[in-house]
Design a protein around this nucleic acid. Structure first.
Length: 492
RNA sequence: AGGGAAGUAGCGCAGGCCGGUAGCGCAUCUGGUUUGGGACCAGGGGGUCGCAGGUUCGAAUCCUGUCUUCCCUACCA
């Protein structure tokens, strides 16, 4: 936990925003609620995307692309889904502008160019995709369809936050169609595990896998599975979701298939997605007051080299040694950057790369090099040590892995020490105020009680963990009998 | 939508109560000296003070209206 972080939300907000802006990940744009992802931040997203894409393909999926516009009539076909998103849709109503007759040089929307049917800018793609699948599926031989799409979506949120909740965001959405319920459920759970694998092993962020309660379920889903992560201020963040959609979309879009016995039945569906919100999770979970801390496996730059020299002669000597090392490191697949800009001093560069969270910094100083040494600094711990130049090629890959593990362990220790069992309402409120984090508590299983708890405490049920042990108990609010604890937290 | 705050140089802010030619820090540009943890000196450029009215000899400042943004509630990957 960062020494400057207080429990006050606005301080934490400020800290978070500064990290992202000063770390060069993203910035606010001219468009309300939308962000500009800068090259460094986009590089991070690309690395995450590449790993996920490989995982999707390894589990049998292929990529495709569907339109950004969804005709309103298609959008409203699955009622619950449409209702769930209706409040936050951007809608295209016209297709042309014209010069304002009263004010030359200005444009107005041409009232003559009103669309016959409005187009919804996709907040998610189930509607357009299932309308398409209808034409692709006739027989069990056409199944399963295992498609993923990398896309942008728009959700017109009232309140926005860089990466966590922007009006437009980038994501992937998988949409699969299956012949049986069992196969669809299996797919839903399989993809949840893919997400957990990615977030834990690449983003170094421990997650809890679970199922959402009815209140928190995706609009139009039968079951929503999720991974939940804990941020440094003790609030939870939903890091990814995988939905079992049952036959809801198949029924809404009339997607039927003939099975092997020639029976006609509706298709079973899943959808699953993670977004650029993951970058927000990464920032909030690992950073400190000096800036970002990026896990080596997805960091855009894994090693940065800063030279320190006096005069051209030393500079040339250092350049030569750096060039040789860089060639070796690149041959091992390590992303390395040489910061040889001569308009900034070393101290400036150190601070700058620390803000950007580069896992390892090498300082090539003329003084050390005379002894054949190079200083290695770890971003995660701040530790510095000098090592012989000729050992670096072997040492750095090992060090990067060690840092990856170390960041994960730190986050896991924090998470584990902030899951608390609570049995009374008084303790529940007190724990939320004094030591925020996950709270494992009994709940009577009714949506009404969940709603009441949310109203009174601002805490929601984050999930019912997958491997949750059964345990007799009493609901913390109503005292009614309960068979298991569920995880509560205040959330982003 | 309800409650609170703010709009002044690219960024961050002061000035406002008490009207009198627009200020500071960072950034930027020029020249020079520097380089082992955000260098220093000197000089320069950049603003119709959110917008529209009003009061006044004179408005960043006072008054009225208006727009925008942020924070707290509601919604949400």
């Amino acid at each position: 936990m960062s020494k400057e972080i207080t429990s006050r939300a606005e301080d934490y907000s400020q800290w978070y925003n500064d990290l992202i802006i000063k770390g060069e990940l993203a910035d606010y744009s001219a468009v309300r609620g939308c962000m500009v992802i800068k090259p460094y931040g986009y590089g991070l997203w690309e690395n995450m995307r590449d790993v996920l894409d490989r995982m999707f393909k390894d589990t049998g999926h292929v990529n495709a692309y569907f339109p950004i516009f969804v005709p309103k009539s298609l959008f409203e076909a699955e009622e619950k889904n449409a209702e769930g998103f209706a409040k936050e849709c951007a809608v295209v109503t016209h297709y042309r502008l014209k010069t304002d007759p009263d004010n030359k040089g200005k444009l107005i929307v041409d009232p003559e160019a009103k669309l016959e049917e409005e187009l919804v800018v996709r907040p998610t793609s189930e509607a357009i995709i299932w309308n398409t699948y209808k034409n692709w599926i006739q027989s069990y031989r056409d199944l399963p369809i295992l498609i993923n799409q990398w896309a942008n979506v728009v959700r017109w949120e009232m309140r926005t936050r860089l990466f966590l909740r922007t009006a437009e965001f980038l994501w992937q959405e998988g949409h699969t169609a299956h012949a049986t319920k069992e196969e669809a459920v299996e797919e839903t759970v399989k993809m949840l595990h893919v997400y957990a694998d990615f977030v834990e092993n690449y983003m170094a962020l421990p997650v809890i896998k679970g199922v959402k309660s009815a209140n928190e379920r995706f609009a139009g889903a039968e079951d929503t599975y999720c991974i939940e992560a804990l941020m440094q201020d003790g609030k939870a963040l939903q890091a990814g979701t995988s939905h079992f959609l049952g036959q809801n979309f198949a029924k809404a879009f009339d997607v039927k298939f003939s099975d092997q016995e020639n029976n006609l039945d509706y298709v079973w569906a899943t959808s699953w997605g993670v977004s650029t919100r993951l970058i927000g999770a990464l920032v909030m979970a690992h950073s400190d007051d000096e800036g970002l801390i990026l896990p080596p496996r997805i960091a855009p730059i894994q090693v940065v080299i800063v030279p320190i020299y006096k005069g051209e002669e030393q500079k040339a000597m250092i350049n030569e040694k750096v060039k040789a090392l860089m060639a070796d490191l690149k041959a091992k697949g390590i992303r390395v950057k040489y910061d040889d800009a001569d308009n900034a001093r070393p101290g400036w560069k150190f601070a700058e790369w620390e803000k950007k969270g580069v896992p390892v910094r090498l300082t090539f100083g003329a003084r050390d090099l005379e002894k054949g040494l190079v200083e290695i600094a770890r971003r995660d711990t701040g530790a510095k040590q000098s090592e012989p130049l000729d050992h670096l090629t072997d040492l750095i890959p090992v060090l990067l892995e060690e840092i990856q593990q170390s960041i994960f362990n730190k986050a896991k220790d924090f998470r584990d020490s902030n899951i608390r069992k609570v049995d009374t309402w008084e303790d529940f409120i007190k724990t939320l105020e004094e030591t925020p984090g996950f709270i494992a508590a009994h709940w009577d299983g009714t949506p009404e009680t969940e709603e009441k708890i949310k109203e009174l405490s601002k805490a929601t049920i984050r999930c019912i963990p997958l491997d949750n042990p059964l345990e007799e108990g009493k609901c913390i609010l109503t005292g009614n009998p309960s068979k298991q604890r569920v995880l509560f937290a205040r959330a982003y």
